[in-house]
Design a binder for these strands. Structure first.
Lengths: 261, 261
DNA sequence: GCGTCAGGTTTCGCCAGGCGAAATATTTTC
DNA sequence: GAAAATATTTCGCCTGGCGAAACCTGACGC
């Protein structure tokens, strides 16, 4: 009987709950239990349970006085982050490819999540000797140029929250003293970019800049990373200025629709 | 053991699948089975099934070459309709309330869904004798001013698809002849508004205008409905011009972000 | 007020089908 | 090519999802 179609590894309740969610979203208004049940063709009791479940996670909103269900906050917030990141990627990728072409070094795009830097897009250098992280990887904020770029432009209290946590030691060059870091971040703030040399991995260096939204909040960061061997003041300053203008361009193109409102 | 927390009518698989969806959405990139399993703290097998299930409905996208899962088309499309309608409502409501105050008649906002008109917002007249539909109700397109307003501004092929379907008879005044309808719609197109008198319900009349997006696509319609008794040429022309400027105002305010891209 | 009706909620026993450990296949790495 | 990491499949257990039906609850109508 339950022989669901297609796939093979299909979980019944999940499919059915998604039908409910889909119907409500598509209808674009607040609907009653009975309406949904009739529309998706499932027993009232079953739909009732799904409505409860979906509401309990705020994917739906239960308007109790009128007993109507509509799309909820969790769904909207999820949709928004997805949209934001989706757009960020879309806008940043061509620009990152240009930087990559210009320097032939690895270009990284990252965001901060719960005190860590997460790589969300990477365009790799084609050189034999190159730096490579992989998308989804996580690094501490205080050991990367990406993290420092973001930290520097965060508001005081958020920054301090990170600095006051225990700072992990990645290499012998990792800066572990919060005071030193604070001084570095001040510099970053005035000149606009962060530099890290062998603080995250022995063999790599990195130049990073924040990407700011219209409220000057650093919601992402962009960096160029290269083997320490290729370190040179010319490279650093050339990279910094290229990254800065790239970051500005990305912010610009993102402007029309606020990223996080 | 399975004694889930809180609620009471919580369906386990649904909650867990939502956690998976949520994690992937929040992470903002394509993730592997193992990563999700670790992150949400569920057995790999279980997560595997959810990933399959969510992908089968396109809520997730399974990137097969890399075996990564990311947010899928169904989710995005749902999010988009939700956003659109949410904004439409938000923008239209105050304007509808103004119209309602001005005429003290019922004002309706509707969209088209699979050949039917669906009421998504209604501001009711306070008069004892008033027209009332209810939110979520469905009427045929060819019997309502709302439907005609949309039909008139649809592209030829879409319009013909509706006209060539069998036209249901709601009252003895319902226009059933496609040729007559075509002629009416031409008129609607030139003067900008549609009128219907007793064609949907014996006792009611209705004046409707389309709401156009920046590509002149009629994605919604606005109408004033009143009992036929109160019909008068002055009412009709006053309503028409008020509705037209209201519609223009709504389009205007919606402009900054395209409704359907 | 009481009866009726149209929702929504709760109960309850049944057994489908979800679960996850472990085995297997597949791909990646060294 | 062996080893390691990851994805897929199998399989029996038994949970917990299911839905009919009983039960509420509030809104009308008379």
């Amino acid at each position: 009987m339950g022989a669901k179609q297609g796939g093979g590894y299909i979980v019944g309740p999940v499919i059915k709950a998604l039908q409910v969610l889909d119907y409500i979203g598509e209808s674009g208004r607040e609907v009653s239990l009975t309406e949904v049940a009739k529309a998706v063709g499932l027993p009232k009791t079953t739909v009732f349970r799904y409505l409860q479940t979906l509401s309990s996670t705020s994917f739906l909103r239960h308007d109790i006085p009128n007993d109507r269900y509509g799309i909820g906050a969790a769904f909207r917030s999820l949709a928004r982050t997805d949209r934001s990141l989706h757009r960020l990627r879309e806008v940043a990728m061509p620009i990152m490819r240009n930087l990559n072409r210009e320097f032939n070094e690895t270009i990284n795009l990252a965001i901060e999540t719960q005190g860590w830097i997460i790589y969300i897009e990477i365009v790799e250098s084609t050189r034999a000797l190159r730096m490579q992280a992989h998308i989804g990887a996580r690094d501490p904020m205080h050991t990367t140029a990406l993290g420092k770029a973001i930290l520097a432009f965060l508001a005081e209290p958020e920054r301090e929250k990170v600095l006051s946590a225990s700072l992990s030691e990645r290499t012998y060059r990792t800066v572990l003293d919060a005071c030193v870091l604070r001084r570095q971040l001040n510099e970053v703030r005035t000149r606009g970019y962060a530099v890290e040399i062998g603080e995250n991995e022995d063999v790599s260096m990195c130049v990073g800049v924040p990407i700011l939204d219209d409220l000057s909040f650093p919601f992402a960061a962009l960096s160029l990373s290269a083997p320490v061997q290729r370190r040179s003041d010319t490279l650093i300053s050339a990279a910094a200025s290229a990254l800065l203008s790239a970051s500005r361009e990305i912010s610009e193109k993102l402007r029309p629709e606020a990223l996080f409102e």
